[in-house]
Design a protein around this nucleic acid. Sequence first.
DNA 1: TTGTACGCGTTATCAT
DNA 2: ATGATAACGCGTACAA
Lengths: 356, 356
Amino acid sequence: MASLTTEQHPPDDRPPTIRDVARLAQVSLGTASKALNGSGKLRAETRLRVQTVASELGFRPNEWALSLHRRRTFTIGLISTDSFGRFSIPVLAGIEHALKEANISVFLCNAADDPELERRHLEALLAKRVDGIIITSRRTDPRPPIAADRTRVPVVYAYAQTSHQHSWQILPDDQSGGKLATEHLIQTGRQRIVHVTGPDSFLAVRQRAEGFRQAMRAARLPLPARSVLMGAWSENWGHVAVAKLLRVRARFDAVFCGSDQIARGCADALREAGISVPNQVAIVGYDNWEIIAAATRPPLTTVDMNLQELGGQAGKILIGLIDGQKPAETILVPPRLIVRASCGSFSRATGDTDKR
Amino acid sequence: MASLTTEQHPPDDRPPTIRDVARLAQVSLGTASKALNGSGKLRAETRLRVQTVASELGFRPNEWALSLHRRRTFTIGLISTDSFGRFSIPVLAGIEHALKEANISVFLCNAADDPELERRHLEALLAKRVDGIIITSRRTDPRPPIAADRTRVPVVYAYAQTSHQHSWQILPDDQSGGKLATEHLIQTGRQRIVHVTGPDSFLAVRQRAEGFRQAMRAARLPLPARSVLMGAWSENWGHVAVAKLLRVRARFDAVFCGSDQIARGCADALREAGISVPNQVAIVGYDNWEIIAAATRPPLTTVDMNLQELGGQAGKILIGLIDGQKPAETILVPPRLIVRASCGSFSRATGDTDKR
DNA sequence: TTGTACGCGTTATCAT
DNA sequence: ATGATAACGCGTACAA
C-alpha cells in the first residue's frame, strides 16, 4: 500500500516513535496513544491494528519523554563512597533486587574515597533527576553527609551512616552479632572466651566487642582485661594473636574472631600448635565470607550480617521516602549465625571436649 | 522588589527550570539559555546576571530534556548475566571508571542467570534509550547473544563472548596466561611441572592448559599425560590433587594452578607433607585474588588477568561504537605475572633449591 | 469514536 | 543584544 502523503521521510534509524505507529496505523497521534495505553474508548479493531503496528515496529515508549511530565524518572543513584569491595557487593545486590521489583533502575557510581569525585557523581545524578540516592561504604563509621541539601532528593545510607544531619540509615547490628557469637560459644559449654578482632578505630570492632562483653557478663563468666585483643583485619593477625596467647600460657577454650580472615589465621595457628579445633578450642568467625569460612579447617561457624537483606531494606526505605512516607530513621539489621564445624557439637553435653 | 506580573505561582518544590532563571533574571527564556551555554552574543552584564541567578537557584539543566533532542542520553546499561561475583567486580570498576571519564552514567542490572530477567532488564534499558550495553559474565565461555537485534544499540561483551552473531568482546588472554606462568617456572629452573586446574568444561581451563603445554613443548620439557589434573575450583581440590600426586610418587618440582584457591590448597598440602615451598616445589597461582594469594604461606606468585583494564577497554570500545567507529571485534587483554614468594628466587642460579 | 492542542525542559533557529 | 518559536516524544485533557 503506497504512502498517502507526498512527504516521504527516509527511513532513518532512530527508534520508532508513537508518531510512526500512528502514521502506519492510519490513525492520529492521540488515538495511537489511547490504543496503546488502554485508556479512552475506541473501536476494538482500531486498537488491535495500532497494537499490531506498534509491536511490528518494536515501538517502546521513550522513558525520558514520559518522565518529563510525570514527576519521577524511576531511577536512583547508588554511590559507593569507597571502591566496590567485599561488603558493597551483597549490599548492592540486595539494593538492585529490591529496586528492580519496583521497576526502578540504578545508576552505579564509584567515588573511590575521593570527595571531589563524589561531588561530581552527585552532581551528575541530580542533573539526571534521580528519584533518590543510596550511599554505601566499606565501614559503618559515621561519615560527613553528602551535599544533597537544598535538593528534595531523599538519601539513604546503607552500611554507612552520617554524623550530622538527621537522615536515614540501614546498619548491621554488630553489637547483637557479638552477643550472638558469644552466646553460641557459651551454649556449647565454653567458659574462657577471648575475642580477637580488628583495629579499635572501627565502630564495628567496638560494637562487637561490647556485645561480647555483655554476653560474658550476662553469663557471669570471667572477663579479664586481656580477653579482647585488637589488631589488623588479617589472617596474619590471627596467627600472631594465638602465638601471643600461647606465649603467656593463657587459659582459653574458645576464640570469637572479628572476621573470618582472623578466624582462619587462628584456626591454622592452633592446629599447627597441636591444639584441636573444636575439641580443645572453639572458634567463631564474622562475615560468613563463604570462600574463607568454608575452606577453613574445620569450616567456620560464623556470624552473617545479612548484607543482602540490608541492601534490600535500604531499597525499600528509599522507595518509601520517594513515595512520601516517613519511615524510621535508623534500621539495625539483625545478624544470623551460620553453624559449621568450628564449635563442635551444639549440645551442652561437653564431656567429649578437652578444654585447655 | 515586587513581582511584575499579577500571576503569583506558589513556590513549588520541583527543581528550578531555566524558565525560573529567566523570569528572575528578567530576560527571556532564549537569552537565559544562551547566557548559560556561552553561545550567542549578549551583554556581559546580562550574562553575569543570569549566571548569578542560576547558581543562586541551584539550577541544573534537566538531562532528559536535553537528551530528547540531542541524540544521546550519555547513559549505558551494564548487565551482569550471573550475579555480581569476584570477577565482575574489577571489570565493573574498570567500566565505571572509563565511562565516568566520558561523562557517561551506568545502569546496573543483575540478570542472576535468569534469561527472563535478562530480557526484562534489556527491555527496561532500551526504553531508557541507553546509548549502549555491556554484558559481563562469570566465565568466558560463549553464551547466546542478547536479544538486542533490531535495535541500533551497540553491545559489547566484557569477560564474556557470544556464540552466534558477529559482535564485540573483550576477553582475558588465558592462553598467554598459561604460558606466562609456565615460562616463569621454567625460568626459575623448574623442569617437571604439573598443572592442577578447574573443570574441563570451562573454556578458561582449556586455554590455560593449552598455554601450559605450549610453553612446555617450546622448552622441550617432558609432558606426560598426567601432567594436567582437572578438578573443582576449590582449595580442597588442591589438597586432593597433591595427595594424588604424592600417592603415585610423581616427580615434580613445580605446580601451576588454575586458581589461587587451588594453589593455596596445594601449598598447604605440600607444607603439611613436609615438602618445602618454594625450595622443593614452586607454585604459581591464577587470579591474583589478593586476599587468598597474599595470605598463602608462602605468598603466591600468580597470574593477574588485568580485569580492571579489561573493563576499561570494554568501556572504551563501547564509546567508540557509540561514536560510530568500528573498532576491532575481539580484544584479548594480556595478563601479567605478580611475583611473590612461592617460586623462590627469580635467578636462574637454582643450586639452592632442593627439587624432588 | 477520533483528532487537536498543550505541557514537560531544553536548545537552536530565526526575527526583531 | 534580545526575544519568540519550533522541535524533541509522550500523555492527556478537550474539542469535534
